[in-house]
Design a protein around this nucleic acid. Structure first.
Length: 921
RNA sequence: GGGCGUUUAGCUCAGCUGGUUUAGAGCAUCUGCCCUACAAGCAGAGGGUCUGCGGUUCGAAUCCGUAAACGCCCACCA
């Protein structure tokens, strides 16, 4: 293979193609052409006069590695980009990575721990140094992996959500939204991740069904010792924070509790019974313990009734008893420092001992988990920054609902609308260091006085840059030092600007690049981030560019294994894409992942699909060997070849149109399947067989040239899907100049021929094409029937047969079926002894043969066919004899049925005649 | 608790506004072939009544209703 490659490329010595290996070996070829594309700058885009086609990559985590989901996603993007490039558009695919604040910070902490360093021992600056080291070390591995897959990203534009331009954009947008009153600071109940010790947005919480316990606890009534209110809870460890017990004022069975007080079991705090209709009548015992610091609803009640909050957890969800009233310390001290789940067990055991547990029931409920760390979320009251979302929902909903932005598949419009119509404010602050630091500053002196929570909002300074540098420059400024907010921003607060910030459109909103590349054409992503990312990009797009960020959104499915299970590390069912590329070639893997991936459907991945991709490469490879192995001579062109060329021209045109149509609907796997069939069936199976010279005979020049031209068009058609093998063969099909590439070989053949046929011409050519396509389909049927007869009678292909035909056929049949066609002349074929018969359309063909014809078997077949045709005719007749059908159906439908009828009758007559003939034997 | 989607050959899926020779493709299966481009291949074949039920219609895989199964999204019942 190495040798042949060498000669193909450099010596261009035709005869060596014959010695090409019959198996395609992708490894060297892929590496070589990717480097070539890079060297020639073929991925790079600059604004020019052409129509732009832009895709921004959904930035993978900077320290992530390639998995099957990426393979699917990036393959689709590459196909779209390469197709656009071939159509002559100025295609620009911008790559980049995401700093993924939580995930990356977790990885850095883990590594530090392995080195014996705790995050808490470091300053922010020290930690960030480690984080950047880690990023430099592991960052961008995934981008290198994308090259193996063949992705044609403009690497010169590689960006990072935390590089300078992107960071500036984030800070500027924060300040702008703050000044517009769309960002505020507030003490709210948020989703708290005790592992990472940070707030999360609602979208980062994943709910799992769980089998839990429902604990019925006995709260002694203070006014009536010995009597108890029974409170049911799933979280007994929160009773230290109980501040009231709430009943519904209309609940009959709890009327007696009204106005009384109860004693929190094991804790000893005396708390009031309050009344609110929030408590559902009939659920549990009707008594709800109110713990405003640890439950969203309880917090609501707490606010309504002005109850105090007792936060009994440390940020890492251990019990903090220091906050409990001194007089109760003796009761609760032993729980101090316990983990929340350990405490749950302990408190129940202790309450059991005190006979304060009424009963414990099994209970199924939903528990929220942190998306990133997978630990149960703790609702926690804390001071955070929020974006007011109603405004954004208002600007982002209409363009999707009226299809200015088109979703594929459209069903996600519902999901999108549902979210936007129930939008809640977005918690954007994180208690992390790795990320964009919130540009909010506090007067150090005042802060020391008030503390963060009570720091007045109107004394907060939100600005780009460090305000301390301005100190002293203003006359009447009393502030001596500004202290920056400790928090970082949610990663998605930078991601939502991606399509704009990649072109520096936030800092310089009217620059040449943003004006050219924005809005982008297509966004390809998974439906799991429709809220996180897609919706918010639409919001930011309209807010900062006044325009949609993309015109189409292609939602991919989730990649699963062939049993339908999600791919996961723990199941070990996720193949390593690089390993697959090693085994099947990048082109094979691309085909494999795409074949079963209609938009929005989950894809059930199976190695067998990549195998099919590899086999396809091999097929193309061998077509090429065959064509280039032909010896050319100045001989006259056979009629069969002329016909074959005419037919394949029509076929190629037809399929190209179908493929264009499928592309316009983003039905990429179907488009690939069309090309696959075009290669394997039509080109290899039929066309090449039609034009193939007899053994060791040369081919005429005209046919050879036409075949090369077809091959080239086929390669261009396939190139977006399988870039490597198509480049390799395209380069070797003709002499190419240095720097040329299939990547930019505009589909001149197609477009030219299409442009040439305009008006009436086009119509005429269409008709002509339809004719030859129909007739060839007919010829193929005849050939297939002959082959079937050979197969069933064990007649070798080499043995020439005679075919008695009632219609005029052409040399194609003689060549491919290896028959001599003889016209049906007066004499019935039956008169010639044994005949095998078949029917195509309404025409009856016969092959005389010496072999014994099994009359019974033939009869059986014919009779089965007869029954089928008669059944069919009955169905047609039933329609035609139905007056209402004839009256109501469209005339062309009735005419069609009539044609069906006459055709069926003709066929039945032919079959009956054949049966009669056999019976008379 | 709401909302959405799916259910067509062994598997994965097409089948657009009901009528196109009584349902198509790829893979898998079966049979026969190493015929000098390709056994990672070639030739041929078998296989579904379109989840069930009811309705609309001259006509339903296709429209409507209903049941079931599966899947997804959203929601503060402790």
């Amino acid at each position: 293979m190495h040798m042949s490659f060498f000669f193909c490329t450099f010596a261009r010595c035709l005869c060596f193609y014959i010695y090409m290996d019959s198996k395609y070996n992708p490894t060297d070829i892929e590496a070589r052409w990717y480097q070539y594309w890079l060297d020639k700058g073929l991925f790079h885009s600059e604004p020019d006069g052409r129509e732009p086609y832009t895709i921004v990559i959904p930035p993978p985590n900077v320290t992530g590695v390639l998995h099957m989901g990426h393979v699917l996603n990036e393959t689709i993007q590459d196909i779209l980009v390469r197709r656009a490039r071939l159509e002559g558009k100025n295609a620009c695919w911008v790559p980049g990575t995401d700093h993924a604040s939580i995930a990356t910070e977790a990885k850095v902490i883990k590594r530090l721990k392995e080195q014996g360093i705790n995050k808490s021992d470091l300053t922010r600056e020290q930690f960030l140094k480690h984080a950047w080291d880690w990023t430099d070390e592991h960052g961008g591995i995934i981008l290198k992996q994308l090259r193996k897959l063949g992705c044609s990203c403009d690497w010169d534009r590689t960006s990072f959500t935390m590089d300078e331009t992107r960071s500036k954009a984030v800070i500027k947008v924060f300040c702008d939204l703050y000044n517009k009153g769309l960002i505020y600071r507030g003490l709210r109940m948020v989703n708290w991740d005790p592992e990472r010790q940070t707030a999360l947005s609602d979208e980062e919480v994943i709910y799992h069904d769980e089998h839990n316990k429902f604990y019925y606890l006995r709260y002694e009534v203070a006014e009536e010792p010995g009597k108890y209110a029974i409170v049911a809870t799933t979280r007994p460890e929160t009773i230290f924070g109980d501040i009231a017990v709430c009943i519904n004022p209309k609940e009959e069975k709890n009327q007696w509790l009204k106005g009384k007080h109860v004693i929190v079991p094991g804790v000893g705090r005396v708390i009031p019974i309050i009344e609110d209709r929030y408590v559902e009548i009939g659920f549990g015992t009707g008594c709800l313990k109110v713990t405003p610091a640890h439950d969203v609803n309880d917090y609501m009640l707490g606010q309504k009734y002005n109850l105090k909050t007792i936060d009994i957890f440390t940020p890492d969800a251990h019990l903090n008893m220091d906050i409990i009233e001194p007089e109760l310390q003796a009761n609760v001290r032993k729980y101090h420092g316990m983990d929340r789940f350990d405490c749950r067990k302990a408190i129940i055991e202790d309450l059991k001992a005190l006979n304060l547990v009424e009963k414990i029931e099994d209970y199924d409920n939903k528990v929220g988990y942190s998306e990133r760390t997978n630990v149960p979320i703790e609702p926690r009251l804390s001071l955070q920054w929020f974006v007011k979302m109603q405004h954004f929902a208002d600007i982002a909903l209409p363009p999707v609902m009226n299809d200015d932005i088109v979703f594929y598949p459209a069903k996600y419009k519902n999901t999108y609308r549902n979210w936007l119509e129930n939008i809640k404010d977005w918690c954007i602050s994180r208690q992390l260091w790795w990320g964009h630091r919130i540009p909010a500053w506090y007067d150090a002196e005042l802060l020391a006085e008030t503390g963060l929570e009570n720091y007045p909002d109107d004394k907060i300074l939100v600005c780009e840059g460090d305000p301390n540098e301005q100190i002293g420059k203003c006359e009447n400024e009393k502030i001596t030092k500004w202290v920056q907010d400790e928090g970082a921003l949610d990663t998605w607060f930078s991601s939502w600007l991606w399509p704009i910030s990649l072109f520096d459109g936030i800092e310089h909103p009217d620059n040449k690049e943003i004006n050219y590349y924005y809005p982008t054409a297509d966004l390809v992503t998974g439906p799991d981030i429709i809220f996180f990312w897609v919706a918010r990009m639409i919001m930011a797009g309209y807010e900062y560019q006044g325009k949609m960020p993309f015109k189409h959104v292609y939602f991919t499915g989730i990649v699963r294994d062939k049993l339908g299970r999600k791919m996961s590390k723990s199941l070990g069912n996720s193949p390593d894409p690089l390993d697959l590329i090693e085994r099947f070639g990048a082109d094979g893997v691309r085909m494999g992942i795409l074949l079963s991936a209609p938009a929005g459907n989950d894809i059930l991945y199976d190695d067998a699909l990549c195998e099919q991709g590899r086999n396809f490469c091999n097929k193309i490879w061998n077509c090429f060997r065959m064509v280039k192995g032909l010896e050319i001579a100045d001989i006259t062109q056979p009629e069969t070849s002329k016909y074959a060329i005419e037919w394949f021209e029509a076929k190629l045109g037809e399929t190209s149109e179908e493929i264009a149509d499928l592309f316009s609907k983003y039905r990429l796997s179907e488009a690939l399947m069309e090309i696959y069939k075009l290669y394997c069936d039509e080109f290899s199976g039929w066309y090449l067989e039609m034009i193939k010279p007899a053994y060791q005979q040369p081919i005429d020049r005209a046919t050879y040239e036409a075949t090369l031209a077809f091959f080239e068009r086929l390669l261009v058609l396939l190139h977006p899907f399988m870039p490597f093998i198509t480049e390799e063969l395209w380069q070797n099909l003709y002499e190419r100049k240095e720097g040329e590439s299939i990547m930019v070989a505009n589909q001149t053949n197609d477009t030219q021929s299409r442009e040439n046929r305009n008006g009436a011409d086009t119509e005429a050519i269409r008709k002509q094409h339809a004719l030859i396509l129909d007739f060839t389909a007919y010829l193929k049927q005849v050939i297939t029937e002959v082959r079937a007869i050979r197969a069933s009678k064990n007649i070798p292909q080499k043995e020439r047969l005679t075919l008695i035909s009632p219609v005029e056929l052409n040399g194609i049949v003689e060549k491919l079926a290896n028959v001599t066609v003889s016209p049906l002349s007066g004499e019935t074929p039956d008169g010639r002894g044994n005949c095998a018969k078949f029917i195509v359309g309404t025409d009856e063909f016969a092959i005389p043969m010496d072999q014994f014809i099994n009359v019974e078997e033939e009869l059986k077949k014919l009779e089965a066919d007869l029954a089928h045709q008669q059944g069919f005719l009955r169905g047609v007749m039933a329609k035609l004899s139905n007056e209402r059908f004839v009256q109501n159906a469209k005339p062309e439908i009735v005419a069609l049925e009539q044609k069906k009828k006459s055709d069926a009758e003709a066929r039945i007559a032919s079959i009956e005649e054949a049966i009669r003939a056999l019976n008379t034997k």
